[in-house]
């Protein structure tokens, strides 16, 4: 079975690293089914756009506040290019407007910063549900 591809989009280096480390750490436990992932990193919306087109990731962790564009704009573009992609929005400010808009635009879930192990696990479990659901319907 192929490894899920994850694109991490955040302009802060250590935030991307923190996400990657903790996803890998969870993958080493019985809390997740998946043992290995392929990661790609983007610090800007432009980089994210290029990497998305190139690698067609299964999951995107997408910060709303990016230096060049809003993460919400990217969310719309990514869902248009690959509707089945599981997109996890990240924000330091979780207003009701942000959350409902993200849902309407097709985000799978929403992580409110600061990060915690429980938040990352919840997002990854949701990702697995979607990813393996797709595989069951359309085996690769």
């Amino acid at each position: 079975m192929r490894q899920p591809k994850i694109l991490l989009v955040d302009d802060v280096d250590y935030s991307r690293q923190l996400l990657r480390n903790n996803i890998m750490s969870l993958a080493g436990t019985k809390l997740l089914k998946t043992r290995h992932f392929n990661f790609f990193n983007a610090g800007t919306a432009n980089e994210a756009n290029i990497l998305f087109r190139l690698h067609q990731p299964d999951v995107v962790f997408l910060d709303i506040e990016l230096p060049d564009h809003s993460g919400l704009e990217l969310l719309a573009q990514f869902k248009q290019q690959k509707p089945e992609c599981c997109i996890v929005m990240i924000s330091g400010a979780s207003t009701l407007e942000n959350v409902t808009q993200s849902i309407k635009m097709g985000a799978a879930t929403f992580i409110v910063k600061p990060f915690s192990g429980d938040k990352i696990l919840a997002a990854m479990r949701l990702m697995e549900k979607q990813f393996y659901g797709q595989l069951t319907q359309d085996p690769i």
Partner: peptide, 19 residues
């Protein structure tokens, strides 16, 4: 509910303080 601790190693901490 089980609690999952955030894993933060020294390399990550160093990156945070540089930032």
């Amino acid at each position: 509910q089980p609690k999952v601790q955030l894993e933060i190693n020294s390399e990550l901490t160093s990156l945070f303080y540089q930032n």
